[in-house]
Amino acid sequence: MTPEDYPALFHSADESSVAAQSSYLWLIRLQYGLLITAATVALWFDNAPALLLVYAFIVGASTALLIYMSVKKPEKDWYGCRALAESIKTSTWRYMMRSEPFEDVPQVSSVKQKFAAFLKGILDANSHVRDSISRRPKMGDQITPKMNEIRALPLEERREFYRTKRILEQRNWYVRKVKTNRRHFLGWIAFCILIQGSAIVLALIRSRYTEGWSIWPAEPLLVVASAAIGWIQIKKFNELASAYSLTAHEIGIIQTRISDVTSESEFSEFVNESERAFSREHTQWVARQND
């Protein structure tokens, strides 16, 4: 399955989520940048009192940005659009696998109508992100030719397609995310240790050489370290690595059971159970982001 094989609504929600995430994280970076700049400017107060005005302006801009983010809560669009995109994706797989509530019926048109109604229901349940999605309209089909092609396959071929293109790909995605988040966590921790260690060294040097430099950048270094710690807390690298690892193991357990599926009813139940596992992890992710 390529991204183009999913409904047009999925693309709108997915792109909106990516854009909202990027905007939110850049606002966080800007907030930290302003604070670091303010701490750096403060080093020259004694030599250039006029910099007090610059300092006041920077702190004022940082405060205004804080108020804006507190009121607008731009991260909500990120979470909401991602939840909508994942709901559409799991519904798409249920449709293609003829899983409940899109099981096989004599008239395929009735299933298509049910899927369209299902999409509308998902969109209505996420009405708070309508504005974000409306800014990225897509002209593709809501039921793509690929979806109907896969749905028309015999049980054995659909089962194999689901195993390789859904379960294995999903498991590999979680494994990659575990490694990435752990690597980033260790990298940022090492950076914090380096910065705070530098501040300690500067303090020790200053205690012995009081007549040394006129400017000691210990305070900006501590602000940089605080920003790095804040970034770790926002990204939740370690927490996500643990959660993704557990999900990858759960998917591995699910994968071992697919070979025992021999009928349409068993496959429908299996797909629904698998999709609930995928959705459960994402629901928990949204809840963690909202905490």
Rank of each mutant, 00 (worst) to 15 (best):
K179N: 08
S22C: 03
L35S: 13
F161C: 11
I258D: 06
C192P: 05
D131A: 15
I143M: 06
G197A: 05
I36T: 12
I28F: 15
S265L: 12
R98A: 08
L186M: 10
L35V: 12
V59H: 03
V224N: 04
E239K: 11
Y55E: 09
V18W: 07
Q255C: 02
M139G: 00
I58A: 02
S127T: 06
A227C: 09
R257F: 02
I133W: 01
A83Q: 08
W26H: 15
V271R: 07
S23W: 13
T256N: 13
F10K: 00
E264K: 11
L43R: 03
D104F: 06
I58T: 04
V105G: 01
S127M: 02
A199G: 06
T210E: 09
E160W: 07
A190E: 03
V71Q: 14
I205Q: 08
A50G: 12
A218S: 14
R151P: 11
R208P: 01
A125S: 15
R163L: 08
W285Y: 10
Y32M: 10
E100L: 09
E156T: 08
V108T: 11
F57P: 00
R182V: 00
F118A: 12
Q289R: 15
A203F: 03
G187D: 01
I251S: 02
P3H: 08
K73H: 12
I195W: 08
E266W: 08
W78N: 02
F278C: 03
